[in-house]
Design a binder for these strands. Structure first.
Length: 112
DNA sequence: TTATTGACGGGTA
DNA sequence: GTACCCGCCAATA
């Protein structure tokens, strides 16, 4: 049988899928949870590959500033914001409002 | 093969 | 509070 090793990307997608509605996480939080820590950029690459997946709410993944850094990758520049608003989040100026309140850290909430 | 870029983060000036 | 620099890992040119 072919190798069935879980890639770093699949691990990222798995965490993103577990992000509850109305919450959001950051690239660094996911990277740290996976153990890479400083490799937040790899999470971004994983998101880029996540385009082929149906259940990866990448809109809930933003940078540590709460800014919709990847909004440009959703086909439309406002698609990511609309998705977040549909999740019950408040978005203003391409940034999540009260991000510290909706922040969901897998290393704290998931790794329990 | 090496060099540059990339949906980032954190520290220092 | 803002600006700049370095670090991480992988993919692309």
């Amino acid at each position: 049988m072919p190798n069935r090793e879980v890639s770093f990307f699949e691990n990222v997608w798995d965490v993103v899928r577990q992000v509850p509605k109305g919450r959001a996480t950051t690239y660094g939080a996911i990277a740290k949870y996976l153990g890479s820590g400083l490799s937040a950029r790899m999470v971004g690459w994983a998101m880029n590959a996540a385009h082929a997946l149906p259940d990866v709410p990448a809109q809930r993944v933003v940078n540590r500033n709460g800014m919709l850094s990847g909004k440009a990758h959703f086909g439309s520049p406002t698609r990511m914001q609309e998705l977040l608003v549909a999740d019950g989040l408040a978005v203003a100026d391409d940034t999540i409002v009260d991000f510290t309140k909706v922040f969901w850290d897998p290393a704290t909430e998931l790794a329990l």
